[in-house]
Design a binder for these strands. Structure first.
Lengths: 337, 337
DNA sequence: TTGAAAGCGCTACCAG
DNA sequence: CTGGTAGCGCTTTCAA
């Protein structure tokens, strides 16, 4: 037996309370223009009837659609946390989020076009993606995770420079000099992080020790990179990996090969994912705050909606280093091979 | 300089062509009631003006909203392919898709509720998720990837029994009897696959050789499981892994440990992901057709919309086995350890 | 503080 | 085959 679909409308709430639709609307939107007593009455009745505003109608009637589009390509745990933050921010400001995926057969242009048919108030893009977003200038756009040259597009990201500096300094403090980097491939973010690694090494006077090992984004890449390291005549004593997955896979592989982490080799990841804390050898990791990134991105969009012409600079969040057990003091015996 | 936002409306197209809005609407919807000549003229003008229908208005005005909601929790490559198929189907039928994510802080109920405010015509859920979807009976719902007992919910999935049978038989044909399974953890799908593995073993008269090794969904789990296998006094000669990621990680780990795949041990994965083909040792894998699954799910929803009371059985797709180089004939010397 | 009325952009139904 | 005319459920002036 299928239950009757009886979408409760504003009208219904109005009729049940005896107020007009307009007044009920005011209450629902929490807009000024109603007495506290009226609000209470209306809210109570609305909840009782199970009223939920129709987003389509709301968006159509109001001047601002209050719908924000989000395009994403992958959705690992980091991205899901970003989405978490976006949903939280949207709820708070009574906005709706409509997600659209970039898939193998559906490029960014298609993903955005489809979204635009909802007459979005703004668009948030979760990297990685193109260097220059399409539709820039047509509506407020914020990208999170990478830098964009386009002035009409706001970018929100963690400072990779700072993160790499934290990581390198921590290792230097422990006595390391031979600090390698397993990179994340050829993506925008990976490239940026590799550059930051190099800068951080130079800043610590270790330019001669710069060593970039080809990696990737997934565990399998970490596994391979670790094996490559094992075959090196002279191994680095510490490694900063592109992300936690790569670092953990490398760590695990080292362990199976008989190397001790951190006694033989120290390891640092990026993202401070759940896995980093839960790993067999808890991983030291550069922590980004996805919830903060998301919150900032959302607020930028809101600010743009109110003032489209304003020129915000890129928003840069400072990462922190979460120190766990995968990093340790340099063991002298290792230097003699 | 921000470009002026001038959303082209039906009205504009009507004015530009000299026809009425109603007629233009008919043409845009590809509905009967307009001459071919009119269609051409209108379509040409619409394209020229860059007209795109406003989904909000369309959904509000029509009796069926033509919006289908999709909830997802993870989005690995398999899920992105599912989304691909859904988008393709939606485009074809002039439907719009609105995605909603289940995140750490946002459970299924919230994800669906938010979606419902769009007054969905139907809902598609990409597993894994709850055994019994909420809101069952309120609107057409299809779940893909796992079986649901609820009669008001359609389920679309690949036959795990068939897939495991294909895998086991292939290995048996190669002379293997000691065929183990690295499971995928405790999720609905993982449990179902493990059961199917056991059934397939029994069907081949190999119940005494049933051996389930604790694994998981990610590479790291495959790595660990492989290491566990290495420590076994008597190792299986073949392994069917929960998915390709696990299988590849295991394969790689075996290789580093000096075991040859497939000479020392044969390996089969699930999903026939891109990685399976690209792996160092190309992986034999049980192939599911995500595009087909998606297409079927969408069509079920459509059928439900037209006839809500109809009782469809679960849709089960037959997988195929893609044979690559990770499986080979049993080597006799291995039996003597 | 409240209510009436006019749309938002589209579809649907009805005459011509 | 075509064009007028009502709304869909909501927001938004503008009066009362």
């Amino acid at each position: 037996m299928t239950k009757k679909k009886t979408p409760v409308t504003l009208e219904d709430v109005a009729a049940a309370t005896g107020f007009s639709r307009a007044l009920v609307s005011i209450v629902m939107r929490n807009a000024p223009g109603a007495s506290d007593k009226t609000r209470e009455l209306v809210m109570a009745k609305a909840k009782e009837l199970g009223y939920r505003p129709d987003i389509r109608a709301r968006a159509l009637a109001s001047t601002d659609s209050r719908i924000i589009g989000v395009v994403f390509g992958v959705a690992g745990s980091f991205h899901l946390k970003l989405l978490d933050g976006l949903y939280t921010a949207a709820d708070k400001h009574r906005y709706s989020l409509v997600l659209s995926a970039v898939t193998p057969a559906r490029n960014e242009t298609k993903a955005v076009s489809g979204l635009l048919d909802f007459r979005l108030a703004g668009l948030i893009m979760l990297g990685p993606a193109k260097a220059k977003p399409i539709f820039a200038g047509h509506l407020p756009i914020a990208v999170v995770g990478w830098q964009v040259s386009e002035p009409a597009v706001d970018s929100i990201q963690t400072s990779y420079d700072s993160g790499m500096q934290l990581a390198v300094r921590h290792l230097v403090d422990l006595g390391h000099t031979s600090i390698a980097h397993i990179d994340g491939g050829s993506g925008l973010i990976a490239t940026a992080r590799t550059n930051s690694y190099k800068k951080a090494m130079s800043a610590s006077g270790l330019e001669d020790y710069i060593q970039v090992i080809s990696g990737g984004e997934d565990s399998i890449d970490g596994q391979k990179a670790a094996d490559y390291v094992l075959q090196l005549a002279i191994r680095p004593t510490a490694i900063i990996a592109y992300n936690d997955d790569v670092a953990i896979a490398a760590s695990t592989h080292f362990a199976y090969a008989g190397l001790s982490v951190p006694n033989d080799i120290s390891l640092i990841g990026w993202d401070d994912s759940d896995a980093a804390a839960l790993s067999e050898i808890p991983l030291t990791s550069v922590r980004q705050e996805p919830e903060q990134l998301a919150k900032l991105a959302f607020e930028r969009i809101l600010a743009r909606i109110e003032n489209p012409e304003q020129d915000f600079g890129p928003a840069v969040l400072e990462p922190t280093l979460v120190i766990r057990r995968s990093t340790g003091k340099l063991q002298n015996n290792l230097r003699i091979i």
